[in-house]
Design a protein around this nucleic acid. Structure first.
Lengths: 114, 114
DNA sequence: ACAAACCATAACTGTATGGTTATGGTTTTG
DNA sequence: CAAAACCATAACCATACAGTTATGGTTTGT
């Protein structure tokens, strides 16, 4: 028997908006792949100015997609992937049959036995 | 043994952009729930003018999220949920651990035995 | 045949947004 | 302590974008 935990419905809009921008997605991807990084490191990666990166991080922060930790003069950001939940929920709801069940199972198995 | 089909990587950007707007998301949701609809019906639903709806539908069309079918003077639109695949792929990639495996399994089971 | 309905496009408008440079606060380094 | 590094915010700019009204092309209804 499967217990279903009803989560508080979070507004999905900030997440959708935040990830609509390719630069922001790239920053989030980089943080997901390489883990925690400073603004400086992200700036070298992103190909835009440091203030631009700071503003992108602010948007991601408002969507709870990143958290930050100050350490001396540098700020370390890290991805907060569970903030993707509203988007995942939305997809599971409105895109429930975008792919047949076998495909879904296949993907799951792939993840569970690497 | 699980066969893995490598799909052609589709540019996820149009999908992310298209779904960033709440009105567009609402239109897509409505088409997903209630099935094929005319522009007229969608206009009554969306709460914006008919030209606005037409433009939103154009954006969704460019992202392959909807298809249309002309029938006399009316155009019927329907959701094309498999166009969500790039977004799902992205989430599976960068949000792989947004939720623990039990949760994923639970969600899967829910879908498989309704 | 004419009027009305349906839809798409054009033309326009205000605001949001992604980028820049400039600046200042804090912390580390020499 | 002075200089440099790191970051955030301010101020500004150009463009993208979501909305509007106006219009015209088809198709349906009377």
């Amino acid at each position: 028997m499967v217990m279903v935990l009803r989560m508080r419905r979070v507004n999905a809009n900030p997440v959708f908006r935040a990830l609509a921008d390719p630069t922001r997605r790239a920053i989030f991807e980089e943080l997901s792949r390489r883990g925690e990084q400073t603004v400086h490191a992200l700036t070298r990666y992103a190909g835009v100015s440091q203030p631009a990166v700071s503003k992108h991080l602010t948007v991601l922060k408002r969507a709870k997609l990143v958290r930050h930790r100050r350490e001396g003069r540098e700020t370390h950001y890290r991805a907060q992937p569970d903030a993707l939940a509203p988007m995942v929920d939305w997809l599971e709801h409105y895109g429930a049959f975008w792919r047949d069940r076998f495909d879904r199972l296949e993907a799951l198995l792939e993840r569970m036995e690497p």
